Amino acid sequence: MKVNTFKTVSIKRDNCGDFWLCIVCAKPASEIIPRKGNAIGYDFGLKTFLTGSDGSRIESPRFFEQNAAALRFAQRALSRKQKGGANRRRTKLEVTRKHRYVKNCRRDWFFKLAADISDQYSDVCIEDLDIKAMQQRWGRKVSDYAFSESVGILRHRLNKTGGQLHEVDQYFPSSKTCSRCGHVVKELALDIRQWECPACGTMLDRDENAAMNILVEGMKYA
């Protein structure tokens, strides 16, 4: 029977003052059998976290926004403490723990979401977005969504279950292309959530239409 081989054991202390026992071991390689099944495309947006090509919509809990008041209160309390004092060190620790709580809640939600998606679909198509540029334009809201982290966790989960993540180029006009006839409009303002294709007359939901195009484009080379 194959068993894990322990390599190193170390104790680390994080910024919150908590100690962690870290164990590194070599795990016997296991064969992951690629699977084929349902496929879905997802469009990431600021209105809705993920819109699926099947019409599903996934809203983000936005954990930072939920805890913004408590974080501001703790930050103001820290700013009033005298530098170098014990009270400031304790208050700074409280601020750090609140930020860790938000991070852990978000990460836990990402893992559960990735498990749910990978259980339903073997192929998932998304856009390879420039998140840094989006953060510069829309700020904290994009950071709260943490799209890049969610993609990394989803990719990890799909790799473990034999699925595959397909990333579509960020410059692919997913929103401006009619998913029914393929006509591409020249301009489509961000505040337009529904539009009518001038070629075939189909009424399109911006996000769902983009997700359908992402699915088709992502599966071209699957």
Rank of each mutant, 00 (worst) to 15 (best):
residue 172 F to L: 08
residue 173 P to K: 08
residue 46 L to H: 09
residue 209 N to C: 01
residue 92 K to S: 02
residue 193 R to Q: 12
residue 60 S to F: 02
residue 99 H to Q: 07
residue 133 A to D: 11
residue 96 T to A: 14
residue 54 D to A: 06
residue 12 K to S: 13
residue 131 I to M: 00
residue 5 T to G: 10
residue 29 A to I: 14
residue 116 D to L: 13
residue 200 C to M: 06
residue 210 A to E: 15
residue 49 F to H: 02
residue 37 G to E: 03
residue 190 L to G: 09
residue 164 Q to A: 08
residue 202 T to P: 09
residue 178 C to M: 08
residue 199 A to D: 15
residue 12 K to G: 13
residue 167 E to Q: 12
residue 26 A to V: 14
residue 67 N to L: 12
residue 190 L to M: 10
residue 219 M to V: 11
residue 162 G to N: 01
residue 62 R to S: 10
residue 51 T to D: 02
residue 219 M to H: 13
residue 215 L to Y: 03
residue 200 C to D: 09
residue 170 Q to H: 12
residue 48 T to K: 00
residue 159 N to G: 12
residue 117 I to D: 03
residue 85 G to S: 10
residue 173 P to A: 08
residue 133 A to P: 15
residue 158 L to S: 05
residue 130 D to F: 09
residue 66 Q to S: 13
residue 153 I to L: 00
residue 111 F to H: 13
residue 161 T to I: 11
residue 99 H to D: 02
residue 207 D to Y: 05
residue 197 C to N: 10
residue 105 C to A: 14
residue 67 N to V: 12
residue 44 F to H: 10
residue 176 K to F: 04
residue 78 L to R: 07
residue 60 S to Y: 04
residue 145 Y to T: 00
residue 148 S to H: 06
residue 180 R to A: 14
residue 151 V to F: 03
residue 118 S to W: 07
residue 127 E to D: 02
residue 67 N to A: 15
residue 162 G to M: 07
residue 24 V to A: 13
residue 55 G to S: 06
residue 163 G to E: 05
residue 16 C to N: 10
residue 100 R to Q: 14
residue 182 G to Q: 12
residue 67 N to D: 14
residue 62 R to D: 04
residue 4 N to M: 13
residue 159 N to V: 08
residue 180 R to E: 15
residue 167 E to C: 05
residue 72 R to L: 14
residue 75 Q to W: 03
residue 123 D to P: 15
residue 119 D to W: 06
residue 67 N to K: 15
residue 16 C to I: 02
